[in-house]
Simulated scan of single mutants.
Amino acid sequence: MEKLSDAAWAWVATGQWLVPARHIAVSAGIIVAGFLAARLVSMALSRWRDRVKTGRPIIYIVEKLSGYALVLTGLFVALSTLGINLTSLAVFAGAVGVGVGLGLQGVVREFVSGLVLIFDPNVQVGDFIELENGVRGIIAEVGPRASRVRTNDGLNVVIPNSKLIESQVINWTLKGGTRRIHVPFSVAYGVDKALVRDVVIKAAQATSFTLPESERHKTQVWLTGFGDSALNFELVVWPTFEAVKRPAAMHAAYTWAIEDALRSAEIEIPFPQVDLRVRSLFGQEGSEAFKAVGLETARAKAHRPHAPAETTNDAADALVADVEQEARDRQAPGRDKGD
């Protein structure tokens, strides 16, 4: 056995065998090289995925699996360099079993859940989802322990992979399709329903993110009920795929457009109120009674028609700006696709 004092061939005791110090350095270099190679390959595939329009889920699967494979290959080669016989993994398997028994069940569970998510066609990177707790956003990344969901407000929510498998998840953009949405509104009793339908549909169709009329995608107005002081309606409309990923802004934009349309058509939007009817005042009735107390002028002004003021639909402008920004982001690889 060579002397430990020999610096060039120093030996390090590892268990029941001795390993040259230079072999340990080489093994460490191999492991580092494996991690660097995995990082470079993942970055290259990520940039490729950003540039293409189709096949992104497949590229993401290749990106993740190649990264894991390179890291594991580096570890196995490093162990071989140390002289460890890889055909005999009884000790290693036993150590892993003890580790799992001591508290690694959660780590293994999340890692396996992440692999399941990578291959799951129902929940993929780039989909806009809604969780049971109300969190909504785009799946930006599926990691070995948790997935990252980026909301429309720019927040990054880290969710354990198992939660996306075990909990109910609403996928707003599954298979790249649009969704029909319902926007409620109310008008006063006695209003012409046909007029309400015409002006609201016209306003919805004038919105830039409403799909063109077709046999399947029809913009409609439904009368849904009778309220205490109003007729309850719903605008039923099919927005574009990009607008579906921004439900809050989309709903606000349609609501604004509906209010503008109703006000322009001088259709009353009711609010809870209590009317006090006076049949006789100072021996007078009707308009004569109002004149007696000097209220005729105020009453006439309240019912005088006025031209609606032009308004700016901030929600619609923000939605269009977000869609345009997302298109620009596709031309700049490496950026998140959040709203």
Rank of each mutant, 00 (worst) to 15 (best):
E326T: 07
A203Y: 01
K64Y: 09
I267S: 03
H217D: 12
K193Y: 10
G137V: 02
Y68G: 00
L75F: 06
A252F: 09
Q205I: 12
S147I: 03
I170C: 04
D314V: 15
L36N: 09
Q124Y: 06
R49T: 02
H303P: 03
R328E: 13
R279E: 12
I269F: 02
L231K: 06
H306A: 15
A307E: 15
T178C: 06
G99Y: 06
A93S: 14
V320E: 04
V12M: 12
T73I: 08
S113M: 01
L36G: 10
V187A: 08
A318K: 13
P184S: 08
R148L: 15
A309W: 09
R328L: 14
A146D: 09
W48G: 02
A252G: 05
P20A: 03
A315W: 04
G101C: 07
S280D: 09
V12R: 14
R109F: 04
T14L: 14
S280W: 08
V236Y: 03
G97P: 00
I59S: 02
V108H: 05
F119S: 07
A204N: 03
T219W: 01
A321W: 06
R299D: 08
G114I: 00
S208K: 11
K53H: 13
L231C: 12
G286L: 06
G334Y: 05
K64S: 04
A10G: 13
T178V: 12
I258N: 01
V236H: 08
H303N: 15
V183M: 04
H23F: 05
H303R: 15
V125T: 01
A243G: 04
A302V: 10
L75V: 12
R299N: 10
I30Q: 06
G286Q: 11
T178I: 10
V236T: 10
G94Y: 07
E310L: 14
V12H: 14
D6V: 06
A8L: 10
A253C: 06
A90K: 14
G177D: 15
V237D: 02
A21I: 11
V221G: 02
L195T: 14
F111Q: 02
L36T: 11
N85E: 10
L235T: 04
H217N: 12
D336Q: 13
H251L: 15
G114N: 02
T87C: 10
L86E: 09
G134H: 05
A298E: 07
W9A: 13
F76Y: 13
A318Y: 10
T224C: 11
E324H: 07
E288C: 08
I59F: 01
V157C: 05
A8V: 08
P239M: 10
G97C: 04
L89M: 12
E2M: 13
L40W: 15
V100N: 01
L155N: 13
T14R: 15
Y254D: 01
L36E: 12
V107Q: 07
G94K: 07
V135Y: 01
G83D: 01
L115F: 03
